[in-house]
Design a protein around this nucleic acid. Sequence first.
DNA 1: ATAAATATGGTACGTTCGTATCACGAAGAG
DNA 2: CTCTTCGTGATACGAACGTACCATATTTAT
Lengths: 218, 218
Amino acid sequence: MPKRVDHEERRTQIAEALIQVAGRRGLHAVGMRDVAAEAGVSLRLVQYYFETKEKLLFYGLQHLTDRFTARVGSRLAAVGPNPGPRAAIEALLLASLPTDQESRTFHLLYSSYSILSVTDGALAAQPFIDNPDAAENTLTGLLAGAQAAGLADPGADARTEAISLLAMTATMGTSILVAQRTPDSAIAVLRHHLDRIFTASGHTTPDARQQTDTNTCP
Amino acid sequence: MPKRVDHEERRTQIAEALIQVAGRRGLHAVGMRDVAAEAGVSLRLVQYYFETKEKLLFYGLQHLTDRFTARVGSRLAAVGPNPGPRAAIEALLLASLPTDQESRTFHLLYSSYSILSVTDGALAAQPFIDNPDAAENTLTGLLAGAQAAGLADPGADARTEAISLLAMTATMGTSILVAQRTPDSAIAVLRHHLDRIFTASGHTTPDARQQTDTNTCP
DNA sequence: ATAAATATGGTACGTTCGTATCACGAAGAG
DNA sequence: CTCTTCGTGATACGAACGTACCATATTTAT
């Protein structure tokens, strides 16, 4: 036989090529020949490692989410060994915004896959459907921890706020993608809500809110 | 000549067929033959009224946004002749959620077009890009009006809250579409934020908040 | 050393798609 | 009453796509 190649490594290489070309021309426009050309291999090779286009697309989705999870993790680690909940949440959310080429590609392709899954049952059964739940749970835990530590408004519902933050981040991401909003304005909106959640109570401002209240106390 | 047909009416009929089949099988999967069959006309007719597929898609997008704008308007009118700002905003947001077949189709296709526009320059230049701005401005005005009337928290930034509400609504819509969230839970989250904005001040509760505050007044 | 298995290239096949072409009936204009 | 123009049908064409098939060099196993 020829030089016993690592199949998983080859598949990764081809999947990366898929992501590149799909990020450039759109997921709908990518063909096996494009992927082969981008990866620098023959069409036959793509067929060899992924028997069908559907399998290639599924593997590409898996690879995409894996890479992005790793990216968010490293961003989170970059804010310090044990950051405050607020810093951690901010890092988490901002890492999801499409601010550079890699995150733009991720956001575009993840959205494309999601939309495709609405009308494609086989894709809907793919693993990427539980990733949002994981993010929601992580964020909820972070918020609840901040509340327990007296850093965040104890009256807020952690899960609802987590859902809200993630939802806003997602739409902001798309808005940035279609050049309808700048990353800065998106970040400003997110920070606004973090301020609301994190300064409404806690050690610094137990009654700072009353400065703007029409206070009826004597 | 034959019986002088109304071109605009025919185009509308065909565009509606496009929307139907695209909503069923996905925008990426729709072909001219599918549209023709759905509309009950020949392939040649689709070519006759829209010379090219690109023009058909553009017209379809226009028709889609028109229909949806009308739908939201009628939903808004259905809440009464002059509703309060809160009821109006709630109607506006809830009308955008994909809760029935028509709004599901709209949400799916609008998202598909948006994603397509990222990698298709001609589509990005299409008119649907300013619709979000219009919604944002409308909502901002509604919120500002509520603030002026003393119904909403005067300390909130109307535009930021408008952006946030629309952003959350958009993502919730997609979540409902992919069956990751139920309409009820999405509505609950939106109502939570409306409560936050609308009960923080106003005629009924100038100091109701202090019931939950750690009030430092004597 | 011979055989079996592996990795890779080249290419052909059938289908589908958007578009173009040919053809023809029906109605208003002169 | 032609004649031109408009609406419609059927069909053909070239390209691109996913997939299948055949060939071949190389390496491991016997």
